[in-house]
């Protein structure tokens, strides 16, 4: 199997980000809250990427930020997929009032912008990690629901699903053994995209001060802390922005590759 160069770049970068996130404790030269230098220090041997608004090492904070950002985004994506896909499949298979009820509920949630719902909920509740993951996962699951329901509705009318029903199979067999294996490829590609949106979402929340709270840090939070530096020509705010950008692009490249690979399995041209 030949992997196209764009996918190779995506895989390498994504792998690097994951490696850094997992081994942050060992890789980071300084502790996350350690004011080891002066304010707005430039790049040097002691502080490779310089220091931030209160003299903390930016590289170390980027590394710890990667851990938090990726962890929260991954956890909420997993939550949104488990919930959204299960409910979407159920709606497609059961039909009737279950489908109607779930679909209208999802319409209702999607009618209000996610950010506004998140802001309201997070102002009322204390924004700890669990609440963040839950709110992001729940909001995103509506989009996964839409996709899984559409994919499953196509599969649910196939003769082999009817054959399973005529055999007397329960809903769980139909969902997990007949539909899920055939719906997996579009869902895996979608997972990559939703993960990116989760990264952007948590960064946005943190930038607005409602996401990750100190002493923990993430990229959106770093952007917020250092944004004043931009006016003074300091690069400190640009570095986390660049990290968000490159993570989004690399995951996107992988997702694209998975999508073309799986669609070529269905008879399209290999590429």
């Amino acid at each position: 199997m030949r992997i196209p160069i764009s996918a190779l770049i995506g895989l390498t970068l994504t792998g690097m980000f994951l490696f850094v996130a997992i081994f942050a404790q060992w890789l980071a030269p300084y502790a996350v809250g350690d004011s080891s230098g002066a304010q707005w220090e430039g790049m040097s041997a002691t502080h490779w990427l310089g220091t931030d608004t209160i003299g903390r090492d930016i590289l170390s904070r980027l590394i710890f930020g990667a851990q938090i950002t990726i962890f929260v985004a991954l956890a909420s994506s997993i939550l949104s997929f488990s919930l959204g896909a299960f409910l979407g499949f159920t709606a497609a298979v059961q039909g009737g009032w279950i489908d109607q009820g779930l679909s209208r509920l999802v319409d209702l949630v999607m009618a209000v912008p996610s950010l506004i719902i998140a802001l309201v909920v997070l102002t009322i509740m204390s924004p700890n990690l669990i609440v963040l993951i839950l709110i992001m996962g729940l909001l995103d699951s509506t989009r996964v629901f839409r996709l899984s329901r559409a994919v499953a509705a196509d599969i649910a009318v196939m003769d082999y699903v009817e054959a399973a029903r005529l055999r007397g199979e329960k809903g769980t067999w139909v969902i997990f053994r007949e539909i899920l294996p055939n719906a997996l490829s579009p869902l895996v590609a979608e997972f990559g995209l939703r993960f990116i949106f989760a990264v952007l979402f948590i960064s946005t929340l943190s930038f607005l001060g409602l996401g990750i709270q100190p002493p923990l840090t993430d990229w959106g939070g770093m952007l917020q802390e250092n944004k004043i530096g931009i006016t003074q020509g300091k690069s400190a705010a640009l570095l986390p922005a660049f990290a968000i950008l490159s993570l989004a692009i690399s995951v996107n490249l992988v997702a694209d590759w998975i999508l073309t690979r799986t669609s070529s399995l269905k008879g399209g041209r290999g590429g």
Binding site: M158, D159, Y160, A163, R177, E178, P181, N182
Partner: peptide
């Protein structure tokens, strides 16, 4: 069924 293709789960 008529269409054996769609009567069997491809996976």
């Amino acid at each position: 069924y008529q269409m054996a293709d769609t009567a069997m789960n491809p996976r």
